[in-house]
Design a protein around this nucleic acid. Structure first.
Length: 811
DNA sequence: CAGGTAACCTTTTTT
DNA sequence: AGGTTACCTG
């Protein structure tokens, strides 16, 4: 587990001349800018980090004190990278570098009391705040029929990112969801305050409010951080905007770098206007454009450029490079996701074994974390070392969350979410009912739940037995809390024993599982010890918990490891790899189905692909499938409309492992139903749905042919191959735009359209269920998507929601 | 109240 | 496919 920055060797700083001599004229221009606002529009691979680090070194060389400079990034990894590189230019400097959230977390430690918190406040992670949200919804007494807890949480999160307070929201709420959220918001916020906790959004919100309401503090901090640099400015939201703005009034030496074409966090409140309007916000701004690309081949760059030109809302850029032409970009079509994974893994194996490349040269990007599964399997099966930068990570594991929850509760006895987690873990006879009663007592008295537990004997609704159990828990808690200031390792080992958590784990995990939870706990302890050593001066427990709360998945990335890297497109931003695969470039996946509601989201998806493409230095393959497992079911899928926007004529287009050419010259003579293409399903979905069984058979048959023959075949004929996209054009010859393709129904839609109309299900209808067999409908009720049917099967009655149930009409 | 099993629902991306 | 909840039994 990689939590912390790497060891840094000390070196002599280069002279100013040496510093500047390494730069191109536009880069030098930016580096030598000292006072006043600056906007650096930096295309991908244009040496942005180089400019930022050199500029900081330059500022330091002008005798500007290191503590007056702060560099804000979005990920810890970006900050680490920057620090590492700056240290080579300016050894031993103490410039503040880190994420926005960490910056705010540290300010908030100091000024906690000004927003009603104590300095040992806790940071709720996403799942913590989700738990807290559920409790707030219950306490607020609102009905969740029109908005799920998740949706409510989203609305509130969005509001916070827009600096909308609970009071303001109450007056502004319009849609039913907003009305519900507006009722929950103040309750949630009050519970957070009682718990002495903040969520991620609050870190920014509280600081923004501090700066807004205390002009004294604002000007003090403005003076303190005279030079502020913000990386990835296109991803800032309003709260972040307000914070840097407030810190750049008396000392407007704000320098931001970014690329509107790489803005991919709109869904979490990032506002593209922040960068697009920067020149309006700071009229005296100096703008520098870095357009030369030092990373990619012209082949890669042209593909990226062609794609991004389709976005309407952007600043035109001219990307260019002096690099060698390199290999053409490959577009590859596979039968299904397994084949895609196998092919990629084979290709990597072959490149490694022939010494063409090393594992760390490769990266595989996908839109969703779940897509890494089959890739992981394929790589593992071939013994290829890999690292996954994804969500199923260490800190999400139950045993880790449990131990951390104990630590949280020790650090902050008001941490209600942690208490709810551990009060009955391991089980000690305190059930859901008991907890609920403790919580409502706590709510009624506006005290933390642990405090309520201490006063359990005052709670009338509690059974005597329960009171005893709760008191026992409090006693255990007090015993471990007494060790709060002990070294982390001692504290953690003690708590695991004292709570009998180790025994609990042993008992529950004895069944076969290879990944041992106890080993994970040990790993956590190791990480804590590691932290202790690196941060001897910080108050260890609190600092450790903050560190853990603010690490992200992408921070685990280790570029020095000899491994293939698997990650989402989002996580890939800021990185580069010699050889890149982008998988699942399919409609409804990239662009994602839920991003199609408006143009802004659609363009963001295009930028996402742009980001992925521009990570590649010398070699790039995009791939899509005809079928893919979605939620455990194989479903037909269609190529992404974005593929249509690429310079296909200069790319190599390959279909893998289908023995015959699926795009021969005589293509037009074939009848549409012979075309073996996803698009065919538009014309003839019935054939396609019927052929699922056959497909899996085909898959097996293809494997028998071996990969060599596939490779030969594909390489040979690659140049003459067309693509699924060309086919799409032929199907709709007059219109080749995305918009049009977007309007076409996807094959997947066609399949679900195959479902019988809801009116086909009536009382007495004979139906078949894939599990229960045949049955008769006893009664139907409700309307629309909520329409229910009660069905009598041989083994009993079952209720179904007709819109979703896997029911066929027999008669 | 705990622990197991079965139904059910969910799926984008992350600090 | 995987995680979570609901319900049943001990």
């Amino acid at each position: 587990m990689i939590l912390f920055s790497r060891f840094r060797p000390a070196m002599d700083a280069p002279s100013i001349d040496a510093l500047l001599s390494e730069l191109t004229p536009p880069q030098r221009d930016a580096v030598q800018h000292i006072d006043g606002p600056m906007l650096i529009l930096a295309g991908p691979g244009s040496g942005k980090t180089r400019v930022v680090t050199h500029r900081i070194a330059y500022l330091l060389a002008q005798d500007i004190a290191d503590w007056q400079i702060a560099a804000l990034t979005f990920t810890n990894k970006a900050a680490d990278e920057m620090r590492l590189r700056l240290d080579k230019l300016a050894p031993g400097q103490k410039v503040w570098m880190g994420t926005f959230h960490r910056f705010c977390a540290q300010l908030l430690r100091r000024y906690a009391t000004m927003v009603g918190l104590q300095e040992n406040y806790s940071i709720y992670d996403t799942s913590d705040s989700k738990q807290a949200m559920k409790r707030a919804i219950e306490a607020a007494g609102v009905s969740t029929t029109h908005a799920t807890p998740d949706q409510i949480a989203n609305v509130i999160s969005k509001a916070k990112n827009q600096l909308v307070t609970a009071e303001v929201m109450q007056s502004q709420a319009r849609s039913p969801k907003e009305v519900v959220a507006a009722k929950v918001y103040p309750v949630y916020q009050r519970q957070l305050l009682t718990a002495n906790a903040v969520d991620f959004d609050d870190l920014l919100l509280h600081v923004a409010n501090l700066l807004r309401h205390s002009s004294e503090l604002r000007s003090e901090l403005d003076q303190r951080f005279r030079y502020i640099m913000v990386d990835e400015y296109q991803d800032t939201n309003l709260a972040q905007y307000a914070i840097v703005r407030a810190l750049s009034i008396d000392c407007p030496n704000l320098s931001v770098t970014g690329d509107p074409d790489q803005s991919i966090y709109g869904w979490r409140g990032a506002d593209l206007n922040n960068i697009l309007d920067f020149e309006k916000d700071y009229p005296s701004v100096k703008t520098v454009r870095l357009e030369q690309n030092y990373r990619s081949t012209p082949n890669v760059l042209r593909v990226a450029d062609q794609l991004i030109r389709h976005n309407r809302r952007r600043k035109q850029k001219n990307l260019f490079t002096d690099n060698n032409e390199g290999d053409p970009v490959i577009l590859r079509l596979f039968e299904n996701g397994f084949e895609e994974a196998d092919s990629i893994a084979d290709e990597i194996v072959s490149a490694i074994s022939t010494d063409v490349a090393r594992p760390s040269d490769f990266a595989i990007f996908c839109r969703m974390n779940s897509l890494t599964r089959s890739l992981e399997h394929a790589l593992r099966g071939r013994g290829v070392p890999y690292q996954i930068i994804n969500g199923v990570e260490f800190y999400q594991r139950k045993e880790i969350k449990d131990v951390l929850a104990y630590l949280h509760l020790i650090n902050n006895p008001a941490h209600d979410v942690a208490l709810a987690r551990v009060i009955n873990t391991p089980t000690r006879g305190i059930g859901a009912k008991t907890l609920e009663r403790l919580q409502s007592f706590a709510d009624a008295n506006r005290i933390p739940v642990l405090e309520a537990a201490r006063r359990a004997d005052e709670i009338e609704s509690l059974a005597k037995r329960s009171v005893t159990m709760v008191q026992k828990f409090v006693a255990i808690y007090d015993r471990i809390a007494a060790k709060a200031t002990a070294p982390l390792e001692e504290l953690m080992r003690f708590l695991v024993q004292e709570t009998k958590y180790d025994q609990f784990l042993k008992k529950n995990s004895s069944d076969s599982d290879d990944a041992s939870p106890l080993a994970n706990v040990d790993e956590l302890i190791t990480a804590a010890v590691d932290f202790d050593h690196r941060h001897p001066d910080d108050g260890s427990l609190e600092a450790f918990l903050e560190q853990v709360a603010l690490v992200s998945d992408t921070d685990a990335f280790e570029e020095n490891d000899e491994r293939v890297t698997l990650m989402t497109l989002h996580a890939s931003k800021g990185l580069e790899f010699p050889r890149v695969f982008i998988v699942g470039v399919e409609d409804d996946l990239l662009p994602h189905k839920r991003s199609k509601e408006d143009d802004a989201q659609f363009e963001e998806e295009r930028r996402l692909l742009f980001v992925g493409i521009t990570r590649a230095k010398e070699w790039l393959q995009l791939s899509c499938c005809k079928r893919r497992m979605i939620r455990g079911e194989p479903r037909p899928v269609v190529a992404s409309p974005f593929l249509n926007e690429l310079p296909l004529e200069e790319m190599v287009r390959v279909e893998s492992s289908v023995p015959r050419n699926w795009l021969d010259d005589d293509i037009d003579q074939r009848r549409p139903d012979e075309w073996d293409l996803p698009e065919i399903q538009i014309n003839d979905h019935a054939t396609n749905t019927d052929s699922f069984g056959d497909d899996s058979f085909d898959f097996g048959a293809n494997q028998d042919e071996g990969f060599d023959s596939i490779d030969e075949q594909t390489k040979e004929s690659a140049a003459t191959f067309g693509s699924a996209i060309d086919m799409a054009k032929r199907v709709t010859p007059d219109k080749e735009t995305i918009a049009n393709i977007g309007v076409l129904k996807t094959a997947a839609d066609m399949v679900s359209d195959n479902r019988p109309p809801l009116t086909a299900f009536r009382e007495g209808t004979l139906v078949r269920h894939y599990d229960y067999g045949e049955g008769t409908i006893l009664a139907v009720s409700g309307r629309g998507p909520k329409r229910m049917a009660r069905v009598q099967f041989a083994d009993g009655e079952h209720n179904f929601r007709l819109a979703f149930a896997k029911l066929e009409v027999v008669r």
